[in-house]
Design a protein around this nucleic acid. Structure first.
Length: 370
DNA sequence: AACGCGGGGAG
DNA sequence: CTCCCAGCGTT
């Protein structure tokens, strides 16, 4: 019990440098705040919530026109809840992260069912598509609750102002606690919605990721990052794990008309459901020829290795593939889709196109791009 | 704690 | 090219 209390105390120990005054940022905000569509008009939780969901990992420039269009089509949460799912997908198309649209629709229906938006962080957090960030953002901006949402902007501003050198994502709880400290100041408590948006605007216009405009920042005097010269290098991020190198062997089978054998990949996982050139699985250990041949679409054919390797980078590993080519023996039948090289070039994902390019370079297939 | 999930813009 | 964007849900 005491141990837990002490740990809590340690976590809330004030930083060595004091937080700069929230009032200074608010004064700057009053002069320099961005004019954004969702800041005009009534402070309607529906409009705020919609903007926050659209803005998840999406830039203001991309969201603004889409927010206006969405609102024109679904003016209220009731209208959105009553709309068929097809209409929502149509309106969301092109915005990316389509799970957001699904959760948006479900959330609208939940909100209507309960008779309106809840006004506390905890209840907002329980709704579909609303996480810690969005719950705090809606609570503060739409309902004036004194809570600071921790987004990329607030992380960056706080890490710099307080010179937090601990890397993300580990530093997140510390940054959240520090940023919330501003909201405890009287000036911020008097204007929670404005203070939250002031942090966003500072991060988006001056305290930007590269080349921050410290010289004109309202908090420059109290900024530890500026004083120490660390500001432009913060926040730090945990180094990404080195991408392992994986290898695979693929088999390019051509028929008499020069068409290529492709096969549909399993529906889930990497390149799920896409067409592919048959081959071995991709693994870190290399493949012996005998081992690889067990994955050939046809065991008895004039398989010959093509010179060179095809390389492709995925998020989590680097891939190098070698290619064997053969022609379909007369009378043989093989399961799969036969496509002309030009058609294959349009249907294949990038990794497979590298193989196709390798085959073209070796003269093993007709040019697919000519 | 680590991933997958889209698409676009800046440097 | 890489990084970043008013992150969330799943494993």
């Amino acid at each position: 019990m005491i141990r837990v209390a002490l740990r809590r105390l340690a976590a809330s120990v004030p930083p060595s440098a004091p937080l700069p005054p929230a009032g200074d940022l608010l004064a700057w905000y009053d002069r320099h705040r961005r004019t954004l569509p969702w800041r005009a008009g009534p402070r309607d939780p529906y409009r705020i919530w919609l903007s926050e969901v659209m803005l998840q990992q999406t830039t203001v420039a991309a969201v603004a026109p889409r927010w206006l269009r969405f609102l024109a089509r679904f003016p209220t949460v009731e209208a959105l809840a009553a709309a068929p799912w097809e209409d929502v997908t149509e309106e969301w198309a092109g915005l990316g992260y389509y799970a957001r649209a699904r959760n948006l629709h479900a959330c609208a229906r939940a909100v209507v069912a309960r008779g309106g938006f809840p006004d506390t962080v905890e209840e907002l957090r329980a709704l579909p598509g609303i996480g810690a960030y969005t719950a705090a953002a809606v609570a503060s901006i739409a309902f004036g609750r004194p809570v600071v949402p921790l987004d990329g902007n607030v992380e960056r501003v706080t890490a710099r102002v307080m010179a937090v050198e601990e890397p993300l994502p580990g530093a997140r709880p510390r940054l959240a606690a520090l940023a919330q400290g501003w909201m405890e100041q009287a000036a911020a408590r008097a204007r929670p919605a404005d203070f939250t948006q002031a942090l966003f605007d500072l991060g988006a216009t001056l305290c930007v990721p590269r080349n921050p405009a410290c010289a004109i920042c309202p908090w420059q005097a109290g900024c530890e990052g500026r004083r120490t010269g660390l500001a432009p290098t913060l926040p730090r991020k945990a180094p990404k794990a080195a991408r392992p190198l994986k290898r695979g062997v693929h088999f390019l089978l051509s028929d008499a008309e020069g068409r290529l054998l492709l096969r549909r990949r399993p529906p889930n996982g990497l390149l799920g459901g896409m067409l592919g050139i048959p081959g071995t699985p991709w693994r870190e250990e290399g493949w012996s020829m005998e081992e690889a041949m067990a994955h050939a679409p046809l065991a008895t054919a004039n398989w010959r290795p093509l010179p060179g390797e095809a390389k492709h980078g995925f998020t989590h590993f680097e891939l190098r593939m070698t290619l064997l080519a053969a022609t379909l023996p007369p009378g043989a039948r093989v399961e799969g889709d036969w496509l002309a090289p030009a058609a294959a070039a349009l249907a294949l994902p990038g990794a497979m196109l590298r193989l196709l390019a390798l085959a073209e370079a070796a003269g093993a297939v007709a040019s697919a791009t000519a």
